[in-house]
């Protein structure tokens, strides 16, 4: 099984992600350049965090026009799993592979902090090995993390059980106090209609070493690749 870590000019979590996948979890993972036109030979694609193309115009917008995003769209169309983390999530919404959009945090401040998120569905190739309701502590680091979607889209996400993660307190309670950025319904991650594309704002790859503050990210990444591996 081979994992692709897609990197754009301005990506900055690609090294952490590759480290987590390769050296903490022992998977065959490698970087994929943004100019690549195919993802043939890979079993899953990760879009890492950062500030692709300087986040000019809107976070993630310019990256959608790269050749590799054509390849990611084709890959996702074949039902292969794609996960976007932070800027990767923003890119996937801009590319219309995920619904909604991510706007400036309601506080207008860049947020760099540990947050708790609750696994809202185990019915996905990303969280299937985690129990529903599991609370994970992972860092966030973003300026545009406020998830927005119109009422129809939001209702659809809820009815179809496509909210992947929600911000919560340490006990798993979802309320305004636990919502760092003003995301609608505390949404921290969502799934696509076919459930094979997902995005989340927290950084599992930055919570993979005890020395660096926690290992909950390993649980999350392990659930994904463990499941894809079968």
């Amino acid at each position: 099984m081979k994992l692709a870590v897609v990197r754009f000019p301005g990506s900055n979590c690609d090294h952490d992600l590759l480290h987590a996948l390769k050296f903490r979890l022992g998977f065959d993972a490698e970087y994929v350049w943004w100019g690549k036109k195919t993802l043939e030979g890979y079993d899953m694609a990760f879009l890492s965090g950062g500030f692709s193309f300087g986040d000019y115009l809107r976070a993630g917008a310019i990256a959608t026009l790269t050749p590799v995003m054509g390849a990611v769209t084709e890959f996702a169309g074949k039902g292969k799993p794609v996960l976007g983390i932070c800027n990767g999530f923003q890119i996937l919404t801009e590319a219309k592979l995920l619904p909604g959009a991510l706007l400036h945090n309601s506080s207008m401040k860049f947020i760099c902090d540990d947050v708790n998120v609750k696994v809202e569905t185990a019915n996905s190739p990303f969280t299937g090995k985690l129990p529903k309701g599991e609370v994970l502590s992972m860092p966030v680091a973003h300026m545009e993390g406020r998830y927005v979607a119109d009422d129809v889209t939001l209702k659809k996400l809820e009815v179809e059980d496509r909210v992947l993660l929600r911000y919560c307190d340490a006990e798993g309670l979802v309320d305004d106090g636990a919502n760092p950025n003003g995301s609608i319904s505390g949404i921290a991650g969502v799934l696509s209609e076919k459930r094979n594309v997902a995005g989340l704002m927290p950084h599992p790859e930055r919570a993979c070493e005890k020395l660096l503050g926690g290992e909950d990210g390993i649980k999350f990444l392990q659930s994904i690749v463990g499941q894809i591996q079968g």
Partner: peptide, 8 residues
């Protein structure tokens, strides 16, 4: 295609 995001 790029300059505006129709969602927002």
């Amino acid at each position: 295609k790029l300059l505006a995001n129709p969602v927002t």
